[in-house]
Simulated scan of single mutants.
Amino acid sequence: MMKIEKSDAWKRQELATMERMQRDMARYTHPVIRVVGLCGVAYLASWAVVMVLGAAAGAMVAVAAMSASVLVLVAPAFVLAVGVERYLRGRLARISG
């Protein structure tokens, strides 16, 4: 039985194509990941201020509520973005490795 392997040129082309796909997809996935990260930081920071200052930090409760609502609304896009990033990185690792 004959075993057929990919040539080095084919592997390089496949790697270059996957790297380009990852860069192109990053234009959409990275902003989503950054927004979720910033909203998470705002949420935690605002609740820390509320815990320290108590009821005097009424504006921080509004910030916490807004950032929590953004987190809930963007959560599906965040999961999709992280899934795409993980898939592309795993695929690159398999191709290059």
Rank of each mutant, 00 (worst) to 15 (best):
R23A: 12
I33M: 11
M1N: 06
Q13H: 14
G83W: 08
V35E: 04
R86N: 15
A93L: 04
A65H: 08
L53A: 14
M21S: 09
R94F: 01
E19H: 03
G54L: 01
V79C: 12
V61P: 05
G83P: 14
V84R: 15
L88M: 08
A48V: 11
L53Y: 10
R94N: 00
I33K: 07
R20D: 07
I4Q: 08
G97C: 00
V36E: 01
A16M: 08
R12D: 15
E19M: 07
A62H: 04
M1D: 04
L15F: 11
M66N: 13
V84Q: 15
S7C: 04
L92H: 00
A26V: 03
V84K: 13
A68G: 06
G83I: 08
M25Y: 15
M25H: 12
G97D: 00
A26F: 05
R94D: 03
E85A: 10
G90K: 06
R34W: 05
L73H: 14
P31S: 00
R20K: 10
V32W: 07
S46I: 03
V74F: 04
R27E: 14
R27P: 07
E85Y: 06
L38D: 07
W47S: 02
A93R: 02
M2A: 09
K6L: 14
P76F: 04
S96D: 02
S7H: 05
M18Q: 10
A64I: 01
E5M: 13
V61F: 06
L80C: 11
V32L: 04
A68L: 08
R23Y: 05
A9F: 09
R12I: 13
R34D: 10
T29P: 09
G83R: 11
V74R: 01
A62N: 04
V50P: 07
S46Q: 05
G40T: 02
S46R: 06
A81M: 08
V72W: 05
V82S: 15
L92Y: 00
R94C: 00
T29M: 07
F78G: 02
L80R: 12
V52E: 08
Y43T: 02
S96R: 09
V74N: 03
A48R: 07
P76Y: 04
A26W: 03
L88Y: 03
R91K: 12
T17C: 10
R34P: 01
S46F: 02
A64H: 01
R34N: 07
V41Y: 11
V52P: 03
L92R: 00
R20C: 03
L80K: 10
R94Y: 02
Q22W: 15
T17Q: 14
K3V: 15
R89I: 04
A26N: 01
A64V: 01
V74Q: 10
I33W: 02
T29G: 04
L15D: 06
A56P: 03
V52H: 10
G37S: 04
V84F: 13
M1P: 01
M2F: 09
V41W: 09
P76L: 05
V52C: 05
V70I: 14
M51I: 14
Q22V: 14
A56G: 07
G97N: 00
M25K: 15
V61E: 11
A62I: 07
V41L: 13
I95M: 00
V74G: 01
G40N: 08
A57L: 09
T17M: 15
